[in-house]
Nucleic acid binder design. Structure first.
Lengths: 284, 284
DNA sequence: AAGTGTTTGTTCAATGTCTGTATAGTCACC
DNA sequence: GGTGACTATACAGACATTGAACAAACACTT
């Protein structure tokens, strides 16, 4: 959250938080206080979240807590943000249930400000949409509510999507499979990729493969992504996709993208959490 | 950046950016930091963009980043993020000039999504508010526009201020000096402190010192901050502030807080950029 | 009061990574 | 033909890694 340090190795991190490297390692192995990611060679790379926990740990010690208790408390204090995210999701769902536009927007405001785009997409927007979709299938949520939610959120995300063809980064060409109408997940994927300064060409829902191929030919993107929730919709396009995959780097995304199909048409598969997938793609 | 060097070979380029040729080649091959075009014979020809990246790289190293991280950051920063922030500020100002609520909100959305809370406060919101204030003093901006801007932004920030008395961090008690109506800067300060998991008790604009003292007595905060734009408003309360400073840790903030006065009443002074000041306070 | 066990910050050794620099042999340009 | 640039490989010092051991501080029992 805080000072713009990206990822620090233990030495510099230790200097900044005022704890020796040895002690940091001890706290990590004994209490799991920090969770640094690792460099390819195994070095710890610390983030701002770790710094916050260490800060909290030191406050605990200053107050006379034992190390174990202080660490426990510091980790427990992580909870508010998790709880808060869940709470935001619940409030968004309620707002949707009531067709309450203002409330929905203020949930999104709050979440964006407090957690930023990626976290908001991962833990608030996408789970809530899934919830809405599931609720509809179970007959608990009216289709009009689903539309209300999609439109509101799509509008909101599209507002963040200005000028995203601009810049000098690699180009991604994104489309939903023919027949697939759910474009919001793909939109989220696009926004995350955009935040890594990729350029985006977004063709959206229900895009014929021929259209996609033509766009790919003229724009020569660094990556083409085709997304679908329904495996059948991709399966139906297997031949066209295979041809496309020979011309440009192609990836399949969404729950409809199976490993089997991806392997068969020689496309990359972006599995699971598309926000994470976008981060990974951006590393390449 | 208006350096007249069109295309330099590595020797001269190295001299100008102050990095040895060997190291430049290493940075290029290891991290892809520079992307010089090549002469027909294969010589590297560097451009101003390369110089900018090297410059960034060196800044990163100075801040204690590892070479790999510094390079990563320099490349990531390639997107003209400073330009973008300035652009957001300009758009916000325009939106305010037109009383265009929707546009103002979408600028804030975009900025929060792209840069997070702290950067948005520091480089978009606060500078724009200052601009508005200055414009008003110069007679270029109507007072109604100033009110429009304050209300819109205050509303937005207050939405982030839920439950900020909760948690276990140290408590900060914040108030504007009696007569001081500008509370938004202090609100920004509070939000940054909150992100370091401090608890906040925000008394807001125009708070009598007696009220503040009473609140301090019952809550025993780790820090009391009194903010003002006008030195005279603080000066007028010197006696009361001095008494307060004997009872609890006190800090003066804002352009109205002079070094002289702070020393006299034995309070800490939070100078300049309050967002930075909040980060520093949180370290203590 | 002495004995026992736990907690926790620190130390050490052996190994590995990261990164700036140096070297060797070849090639480009004036 | 001399100066400077090219690639590729090697190397040393700074910095990190794990795992085990250690000593002071504290708590609890006998």
């Amino acid at each position: 959250m805080a000072t713009g340090f990206g990822q620090l190795r233990i030495g510099e991190f230790a200097r900044r938080v005022g704890v020796t490297p040895e002690l940091l390692r001890a706290w990590e192995s004994r209490y799991g206080l920090t969770r640094p990611v690792r460099s390819p060679g195994g070095f710890r790379l610390y983030t701002a979240a770790d710094a916050a926990r260490v800060e909290q740990m030191r406050r605990g010690l200053d107050q006379g807590l034992s190390a174990a208790e202080a660490a426990h408390a510091a980790l427990e204090d992580e909870r508010p943000s998790e709880d808060l995210l869940e709470d935001l999701g619940a409030r968004l769902l309620t707002a949707i249930g009531r067709y309450d536009e203002a409330a929905a927007h203020s949930v999104l405001d709050e979440s964006l400000a407090a957690f930023g785009l990626e976290e908001t997409l991962r833990h608030v927007v996408l789970p809530t949409l899934k919830e809405v979709g599931d609720g509809w299938q179970r007959g608990e949520i009216d289709i009009s509510q689903e539309h209300f939610a999609s439109n509101l959120i799509r509008g909101r995300l599209l507002a963040l999507a200005r000028f995203w063809g601009r810049g000098k980064g690699p180009l991604a060409l994104l489309a939903c499979a023919p027949g697939e109408m759910h474009d919001i997940t793909l939109l989220a994927f696009a926004l995350v990729l955009r935040s890594h300064s990729w350029r985006i060409l977004f063709l959206g829902a229900d895009t014929p493969i021929a259209t996609l191929a033509r766009a790919a030919e003229t724009t020569r993107p660094a990556l083409v992504v085709v997304s679908s929730f329904d495996p059948a919709l991709l399966e139906a396009q297997a031949a066209g996709l295979r041809r496309l995959a020979r011309a440009v780097p192609l990836a399949l995304a969404g729950p409809g993208a199976t490993d089997e199909l991806s392997a068969r048409i020689r496309a990359r598969r972006l599995d699971g959490d598309l926000v994470v997938a976008a981060d990974e793609v951006a590393q390449t």
